[in-house]
Nucleic acid binder design. Sequence first.
DNA 1: ATAAATATGTTAAGCGTTTAATTAAAATAA
DNA 2: TTATTTTAATTAAACGCTTAACATATTTAT
Lengths: 349, 349
Amino acid sequence: MSSIKEVAKHAGISSASVSIYLNDKSTNRVSAETKIRIEQAIKDLNYYKNVFASSLSTQKSKLIGIIIPTILPLFSNDYTNTLLSGIQTRLSSFGYGLLFFPSSAQSSIEIVKEQLENSAGCDGYILFSTGFCTMKQILKNIGELKKTQRPFVTLNIPQVDNTVNQVLIRDLDISTGVRHLIEKGHNNILLLLGRAGGEHAYFLKKDFQQTMERNKLDYSDKKILYGNYSAETAYSVVKSAILNFPDTTAICCMSDIMASSALQAVFDLGKSVPEDISIIGRNNSLYSRLSNPELSTIDLHMHQAGLSSANLLLDTLSGNTGIQKILLSGTLIERNSVKTLNRESNHDS
Amino acid sequence: MSSIKEVAKHAGISSASVSIYLNDKSTNRVSAETKIRIEQAIKDLNYYKNVFASSLSTQKSKLIGIIIPTILPLFSNDYTNTLLSGIQTRLSSFGYGLLFFPSSAQSSIEIVKEQLENSAGCDGYILFSTGFCTMKQILKNIGELKKTQRPFVTLNIPQVDNTVNQVLIRDLDISTGVRHLIEKGHNNILLLLGRAGGEHAYFLKKDFQQTMERNKLDYSDKKILYGNYSAETAYSVVKSAILNFPDTTAICCMSDIMASSALQAVFDLGKSVPEDISIIGRNNSLYSRLSNPELSTIDLHMHQAGLSSANLLLDTLSGNTGIQKILLSGTLIERNSVKTLNRESNHDS
DNA sequence: ATAAATATGTTAAGCGTTTAATTAAAATAA
DNA sequence: TTATTTTAATTAAACGCTTAACATATTTAT
């Protein structure tokens, strides 16, 4: 690895000139001929600028740390990937790179701590929340982020106090799906959530209960299923739930993947969608469009959420010290997996 | 941001001691009481180690640069995400983080160049290939990587010479699907590829042609479709192809997503799968399992490929200077989207 | 009692850039 | 001609951390 000094020596000038040129190729502090000699030297020596030395010197790294408190492999979750995709799109166009730190810890808090430990020097952070996090952990993680004294924004985390930049997709948006089903005449609804214990699941469950009770419909904990975000678990959980609750007319799912699996389970039970049972997904992902029948779903605007969080961070990075909260709402996408029920007959169907 | 010096001062010792302790908490060059004082100081000052200063000093960053020559948003491609997931799993467990550099360029070569420009200091790189790359570009990109003098491995790139560590999934594995269809009695096969122009598509197409001709079956360029890796394009392209070639008995697809779309197109034409038309996908992704009928597909072992590339890099990083080539082959997953045809009757079906 | 070993520190140089301050030569103005 | 400005460079300190080399006090061995 050749350094700027070697480039300078090779070009017969001082390293300061090389640095000045490299940071502004149209500078007039370096003559035209010298520029040519520098370029030649860079080529001859295969010089690449050391990002660490440069970051250390300028106290700016043009790198954003992405903190995702999960013990699962990264890049394997549909939601997260869509968010990341939005984030990267925006940050990249402003010249920022993304940094993912390793962690071997097993708990949300330890993961965040470990990732932060060697991360000072990033220009900012984006903190995700995942189904693993309880509210207590989320708050602790935010506290940890605050300690770094760097700008950060939280993404898809249940709403927290107003001292933190946050982008959130209303957790309550499971209710959009539930309300849609109720409007269509369903009153025997199964709720298929991800992992029990996390704050997300807790919120969604509470919201479901409220929505059901507000509509004077039966609510029972037993009608809340946990599919663990996986197709397999969702499949088997739905299958046995339908056998347990043969009156079920609809399933409201927390993710399109689980909705797709639910659909398979219903089929394999010899029933059809939406004739016998209606299904609604969540996320408007490709899964919902590619299933048969195509799934009605709630578009969570994850890509937009990613863009927004990047924008928010960029804004803060450029000196805006105000705290912002960006709230995105899901929108219902009606397709072919929900049947309109005759209110009178739905107990007999 | 507090520095190690401030921590040292606060603890009443020299920064060397702090550094020594931080890099080995069980060191015996620092007394037990001093360790406690250091910990206290770190807490009091919210100290985090500056990754750049540390990397600069040790000449090791524990960071791997991921180079993906695409102009599309990162994290939006199913293949790539699965590869990344494998890479991250392995690298993280060895304490390595991932670095994604920004780039605003529009061509494969410029993208790689730009990303490398400010990346010196990474311990190593993993270079992806994408549907955008022609062989020429790939070779150029590899040349660019070589110049960095850092260990790197190429992933999913058409086989190159033996001076480069490479992990590849045999490009020819479209033939596994084609052969399967032929064995099942199909001889009127449509090939659905991604993007025209890239090396991947070129290889797959050539291989298809060879396989068809070796089996003495009609081959025509017109039966090669380009779905642009997208569900929408695949759908419309398949729809019109089936109208053009009503004798079609099977479609071999380069990706599960496009296969899923092909399935929809077939349905929407009033035909059914596999009764009228057989479909085979590629990647054994969730899409193939969640479609109805479930898609036969080729498992490309993308996650394993990611793991392997990480292993290979780790191996090189730990001093192994030998060049390795890891070749993974796809394996056929038979599900319910391929029908066995009676060879005599397949022209009349 | 002396020498050797151990325990616990510290000093200072170096990693590769950047940049404020400075210099020197050349060009222009007075 | 001399003073001023412009152009094109250089010098040297700083960024925060690591580490080889050195220092000193305390234990242990002889």
